[in-house]
């Protein structure tokens, strides 16, 4: 490996992870986290602990200026105390915003040890709990990236168009809180983020390098939380979609729950507001999480991965990759009940 590229790598623990789930991923893309745990346990044979007592990291409230940083530090400390209680040292937050928050908290404690002591005191007084600082803090995508070649060997499909034999054109979006807040904490740092691009290249796809590749997805917390401000959010997303449109990407893969949500849902809103869709057939560009992408290639059932919950439907993408699926199971629940089909949008095709 090029010695300069070595400087752009990060330490990713090999095994024994403590998993922390994301608030919004569990709601919007619940199949992703389940798929991640399944990939780690069944495909890679790793030990990962998922504690039912976990809670928010306060990320959304913190970035919306509702939760003060002292509270955030104490809440994060409680999560670390759960990790300590179970004897783990490698912390894996599912959400990119959580990853950013934890990195910020750890960096603050490193620079200001008195705040660490204050947080220990606050946590002990509030809950009687104690904690150790994690030895390794990584995002789940870092782990998938680390074992991407091993996973490639187990995959049933590749990111190749089964009709033409050409690599699929994939847009990757790493999320601002992954490496823009603390540039050295991401694979490839902020300059050459490679965490998703590495997966795409190893699994047979082609990364699309378009002008607004590093632009924000439009989430921006404060811009979205108040309805009147959502124009800022959707304008951001539109800028990105317009920039990638000429390259005709087959799908978008994202690192962050907010990015998945906004790049996906705003396509519906833009279609309703401006009658504009970003693929030539009017279906929109499917947006997948990296776990969904990995799960699909490993041959997992797309409906168990939760692809039917996305706004832009991925049926055409599944056909392109050559994935076998039963369309009658699309809205079938775990108990076998068929749920009511969602209402169709007026512009966006499904």
């Amino acid at each position: 490996m090029n010695r300069y590229w070595n400087e752009y790598q990060k330490t990713i623990a090999d095994d024994h992870y403590f998993y922390e789930r994301s608030c919004i991923r569990q709601t919007f893309f619940p199949g992703s986290e389940t798929a991640f745990l399944r990939i780690l346990r069944e495909e890679l044979g790793k030990d990962i602990f998922d504690d039912f007592r976990q809670h928010t990291c306060t990320g959304i409230g913190y970035h919306a200026d509702i939760v003060p940083f002292e509270t955030t530090m104490t809440v994060c400390a409680r999560l670390f105390s759960l990790m300590t209680e179970h004897g783990y040292k490698n912390y894996v937050p599912s959400c990119v915003t959580s990853f950013g928050v934890f990195t910020e908290v750890l960096h603050t404690w490193q620079e200001h040890p008195e705040l660490l002591e204050k947080t220990r005191e606050n946590l002990y007084k509030a809950t009687g709990r104690e904690f150790e600082i994690p030895e390794n803090l990584v995002h789940p995508s870092d782990i998938i990236y680390k074992f991407r070649e091993e996973l490639a060997g187990k995959m049933k499909y590749r990111l190749v168009n089964s009709f033409t034999g050409k690599p699929l054109k994939v847009v990757e979006h790493i999320g601002c809180h992954y490496a823009k807040i603390f540039p050295d904490k991401g694979v490839g740092k902020a300059e050459f983020p490679y965490v998703l691009a590495g997966m795409i290249e190893s699994w047979g796809g082609e990364v699309v390098d378009y002008p607004e590749r590093r632009h924000c997805c439009g989430f921006g917390f404060r811009q979205y939380l108040i309805q009147e401000n959502r124009g800022y959010s959707i304008s951001n997303t539109k800028k990105k979609l317009e920039s990638m449109e000429p390259y005709e990407p087959d799908f978008i893969v994202t690192n962050c729950p907010g990015c998945t949500l906004f790049l996906d849902r705003w396509q519906y809103t833009i279609a309703e507001m401006e009658h504009k869709t970003y693929d030539k057939d009017g279906y929109g560009i499917p947006v997948l999480t990296y776990e969904e992408m990995a799960g699909l290639l490993l041959g997992y059932n797309p409906w168990e991965l939760g692809l039917q919950i996305h706004q832009v439907q991925a049926d055409h993408l599944l056909d392109k990759i050559g994935i076998e699926y039963n369309i009658n199971d699309k809205y079938k629940g775990v108990s076998g009940t068929i749920f009511r089909k969602p209402e169709k949008p007026t512009i966006l095709q499904v």
Partner: peptide, 14 residues
């Protein structure tokens, strides 16, 4: 066209 209570701004980029 649907009204969602907000508008899409034109980008200032040239």
């Amino acid at each position: 066209m649907k009204d969602f209570g907000f508008a899409i701004e034109k980008p200032r980029a040239l």
